[in-house]
């Protein structure tokens, strides 16, 4: 498994990765796997101990993971690591990052080339809407760029 970091947070490897259903039984679990149909609100009782939430993309066209990531960051104020795995494309790198995802499990095929991911992160100088990242306005209007 090759990890790629989308932002500043260092990706951590966890030996124990459980499903949402298993969380209640496994006090030792610090990492959980969310399927795209799972409601992130189910993680509420466990947020204090969770260090990693992995979002699984069954296919890159299934965009539920983007909403899950934003809900984790915006509603649940989850401050641990969010990772995307499964069928994802480098073309989605900036979208993932802007929704709060920190790292990805690189696909095993040609889409796993880290250079493609790197390039995509720098593709656009500005964005036209707010995301979960710290941003400043590049006025006039709605445009923003990352503040860091």
């Amino acid at each position: 498994m090759k990890l790629f970091e989308l932002g500043e947070r260092t990706a951590q490897v966890h030996d124990v990765l459980v499903t949402v259903a298993e969380l209640a039984e496994r006090d030792d679990a610090r990492a959980v796997l969310l399927e795209s149909a799972d409601d992130p609100a189910l993680l509420k009782p466990y947020l204090n101990r969770l260090e990693l939430v992995v979002l699984r993309f069954p296919i890159f066209r299934d965009g539920r993971g983007f909403t899950q990531a934003r809900e984790l960051r915006e509603y649940l104020r989850f401050s641990g690591e969010i990772r995307a795995e499964g069928h994802i494309l480098p073309d989605q790198a900036a979208f993932l990052r802007r929704c709060g995802v920190d790292s990805v499990v690189l696909p095993k095929d040609g889409n796993g080339d880290p250079a493609l991911w790197e390039k995509q992160l720098r593709q656009f100088p500005v964005a036209y809407q707010r995301s979960v990242l710290p941003e400043r306005s590049v006025g006039p209007g709605l445009r923003v760029e990352e503040a860091s």
Partner: peptide
Amino acid sequence: QWSTLHPEFTFL
């Protein structure tokens, strides 16, 4: 502008 390359709503 808001909908252009929206990070969350591009794979609806």
